[in-house]
Each structure stands twice: as C-alpha cells, then as structure tokens.
C-alpha cells in the first residue's frame, strides 16, 4: 500500500526530464523503476509512458546480464542489503 501512495501522481518522470537514452551502466538511474526485490516496477505504479517503459525494461535486462543489477533477491539479501551496491 505504501508503494501505491508513493506513486500517486501519475506522470512520466522520464518524459518530464526529456530522457532520450538510458545507459545500462548507470545502475543508480535504474533504481526508480525497480522494486525492493529488483523486479521491474509496472507502469501502473510508476506512471511511466509506454515508450520509456520499453526503454527501461531493455536497459534493466542488459544491466542484469552485466551483473550490475541482480536477477532475483532471496529473503536474506532483502533484509541485509536493499540497494546497497547501487548507492
């Protein structure tokens, strides 16, 4: 529920910033569109537009392949270090 409230205003933050290209090596920038368990956040919660959501999903999958962002997080990892390596 807390997450829903966090994303109450619905507008695309990437459109507002006029982002044309997202670099997958910049893992900090991807944090906005990742959940606590490093899942890709759905559009209905983040308010991203379709175009930017498509870009982000591709970029996050690239970052996962490059071991910059984890694929999955076990319960232990969630408790000990949420977003530790991205800071």
């Amino acid at each position: 529920m807390a997450e829903k409230r966090k994303y109450k205003k619905r507008y695309c933050k990437y459109c507002e910033a006029k982002v044309d290209f997202i670099d997958y090596k910049d893992a900090k920038a991807l944090r906005f569109s990742l959940s606590e368990r490093y899942k890709i956040m759905p559009r209905r919660l983040t308010g991203n537009c379709k175009r930017h959501q498509d870009m982000i999903s591709v970029v996050i999958k690239r970052a996962r392949a490059a071991a910059l962002v984890p694929y999955t997080v076990t319960r232990k990892a969630v408790v000990t270090a949420p977003f530790e390596n991205l800071r």
Partner: peptide, 11 residues
Amino acid sequence: PMGMRKLAYPI
C-alpha cells in the same frame, strides 16, 4: 575502466 566492483550476483 570501471574498475573493481562488487557483482550483483556471484559468477
């Protein structure tokens, strides 16, 4: 060079 980094998962 991005240097030595911690991997998100062990390889």
